[in-house]
């Protein structure tokens, strides 16, 4: 399959290059450019999934990671609005050295695992039929073989969502306080105001 191989190399090169570009000195100092490059690399990864006939996974990669999650990422980064001088030169500390050591160890393990898998793949035929990644097949798998883990994960997500609401609500006491209406502000300045009561009812307190 020469076209498939060509596509694989093109998409793989795109994913690696867009990730590597995050580290360049020109983009590395701007968090927002780095975040956008991450989205680009997500798109290339989605292309690789599609090439592996995992259609559902590839589109979910775009909707969930490139779409929903990265919108929130960029939202936060942009609102922080860091200027280049605020991002200090990286300092080397013991904690960072330890972290780097752990990262290297995990990377080595992964490389080793990939090597093992590659040698095992030669012995066993790992090819899947072309439809294994379609919506129907994934759905069947989710609701038969992986029913229990799937339901457990959805309960976990529900708990997380409720927990997030509870945590956010703690600091929301001020929302119940009626917002002073323009008419009331007018009154405090010493002017006569007739319909202060009626206008106060429209304060935003949902």
């Amino acid at each position: 399959m020469p076209t498939e191989l060509l596509l694989f190399y093109a998409l793989g090169a795109g994913a690696v290059l867009s990730t590597a570009a995050m580290l360049l000195p020109t983009t590395g100092r701007s968090p927002i450019h780095a975040a956008l490059l991450l989205i680009v690399s997500f798109f290339f990864l989605a292309g690789l999934y599609a090439l592996l006939s995992a259609h559902l996974l590839s589109i979910l990669q775009i909707i969930v990671y490139a779409g929903a999650i990265m919108v929130l990422f960029t939202f936060v980064i942009m609102l922080l609005n860091l200027s280049p001088d605020e991002i200090r030169e990286p300092k080397i500390s013991y904690a960072k050295m330890l972290g780097g050591g752990v990262a290297l160890f995990v990377f080595g393990k992964l490389l080793n695992g990939i090597g093992l898998a590659a040698s095992a793949a030669k012995a066993v035929d790992l090819t899947q039929h072309d439809t294994f990644g379609t919506v129907k097949e994934v759905g069947h798998m989710m609701y038969s073989t992986f029913m229990v883990p799937f339901e457990l994960v959805s309960v976990l997500l529900l708990v997380a969502a409720v927990g997030a609401v509870v945590l956010a609500k703690k600091n929301l006491a001020y929302v119940d306080r009626p917002v002073p209406s323009p008419a009331e502000e007018f009154k405090t300045e010493g002017h006569a105001a007739g319909d202060g009561e009626a206008a106060a009812g429209h304060g935003g307190h949902h």
Binding site: L36, L56, I62, A66, G67, V71, T74, M78, V135
Partner: peptide, 23 residues
């Protein structure tokens, strides 16, 4: 096979250009 999801993904991504332009 994922036609509808493709449509929704692409129109959902439309937030990015608006947000990028705004920022």
């Amino acid at each position: 096979d994922i036609g509808l999801l493709w449509v929704l993904a692409m129109s959902g991504m439309m937030l990015f250009p608006l947000w990028l332009a705004g920022w």
